[in-house]
């Protein structure tokens, strides 16, 4: 119990730094595409430090306790999301036997809580810009909810076919989606991956799906009234979510470790270094997923209209993910029963 608490504390701090670094890498890559030099890698850290020193203004029209508690709830729940996704995988890498399995349904709900807290804070701020941003955020949340649920259910369906506990996160590493898959399964997996990668920028509210925070038309939308420490909490929430969601994509679709892929193990002076190399490999996968899923799309695209976003996710992406689910169900190789 104490070990888990200690691991959770360490991983929260490490996750904070890594999430901010991930945002720095994102800005650096975006600058490279626009042939700029770009900010230093630690720029998000400098921003957070500066915001911590600034004055925090609470508008008179705001509901004071709700306005100031919403970013804290968002930060706490996004940290919980990160820990919930990561700790089973870390145990798996370090080959620690535990009863801690994790639960995909809880992850599904934890993804929602930071956004809902932000929406609550925006509505309670009393600013009309924030209200419009919050309504748009709700529309986006409702339209991406079904694709995420379908992706998670189809991965669980596959795990159940492999006689594993369907909704445990740990069964995702032991029976990855491509494990024992036929042609239908591979095709379905590719469709699901496509759907999940397109859901990623909408969940993170980045261009082209950043209607809730559109800084040119809504003056930063849902975070318009936040300043100082509360704004820093919002940025930290964003960093946690960036790390956690790319980690979720990695775990759902590419949970393979180096030793599984190539059968390599690393040793030095008789001590095994394999888990640490695996963690570096995991970070590499996270950076690749984040830059392909968010940075590249953010650089090449402009902001869509909110009606286009709702239509895109409710019809196109939902259809793609349901087709993926049906293909995975139909795959004859996966049927053991």
């Amino acid at each position: 119990m104490i070990m888990i608490l200690a691991i959770a504390l360490i991983m929260t701090i490490v996750g904070l730094i890594l999430g901010l670094l991930l945002k720095g890498i994102d800005r650096k890559i975006a600058a490279y595409f626009q042939s700029r030099i770009g900010p230093p890698l630690l720029q998000p850290v400098y921003d957070i430090i500066k915001l911590m020193y600034k004055q925090t203004i609470i508008p008179v029209t705001a509901v004071r306790w709700l306005f100031s508690s919403a970013p804290v709830i968002a930060l706490a729940s996004s940290a919980l999301l990160l820990l919930y996704i990561t700790i089973p995988y870390i145990f798996y890498i370090f080959e620690i036997n535990t009863t801690l399995q994790g639960d995909l349904i809880v992850v599904l709900y934890c993804i929602l809580i930071p956004s809902i807290a932000m929406v609550t804070g925006a509505f309670s701020s009393g600013s009309p810009y924030a209200a419009i941003g919050a309504q748009r955020e709700m529309v986006i949340l409702m339209s991406i909810e079904l694709p995420i649920a379908v992706v998670i259910i189809s991965v669980a369906w596959h795990a159940a076919d492999s006689m594993a506990d369907p909704f445990a996160i740990s069964s995702l590493f032991e029976y990855p989606l491509w494990h024992n898959a036929g042609a239908f399964g591979v095709l379905g997996g590719i469709l699901l991956f496509f759907a999940m990668v397109l859901v990623l920028p909408a969940e993170m509210s980045r261009v082209p799906f950043d209607q809730a925070e559109a800084e040119t038309e809504l003056a930063e939308g849902i975070s318009v009234e936040y300043s100082g420490k509360l704004l820093a909490f919002i940025l930290l929430t964003d960093a946690f979510k960036a790390l956690a969601l790319s980690m979720l994509v990695v775990i759902l679709f590419f949970p393979y470790t180096l030793s599984q892929l190539f059968g390599i193990s690393f040793q030095m002076y008789g001590h095994t270094l394999t888990p640490f190399v695996e963690i570096v490999f995991l970070l590499f996968k996270i950076i690749v997923i984040y830059s392909f899923g968010i940075t590249f799309i953010r650089v090449v695209m402009a902001r869509l209209k909110i009606s286009q976003v709702a239509r895109f996710f409710l019809f196109a992406i939902t259809a793609i993910s349901i087709i993926g689910l049906i293909l995975i169900m139909l795959d004859p190789n996966m049927r053991i029963i």
Binding site: P39, T216, L218, E220, E225, S227, L231
Partner: peptide
Amino acid sequence: FGIKLVGSPRH
């Protein structure tokens, strides 16, 4: 240099 334009005076 970390300079960026923000949309809200609060930021």
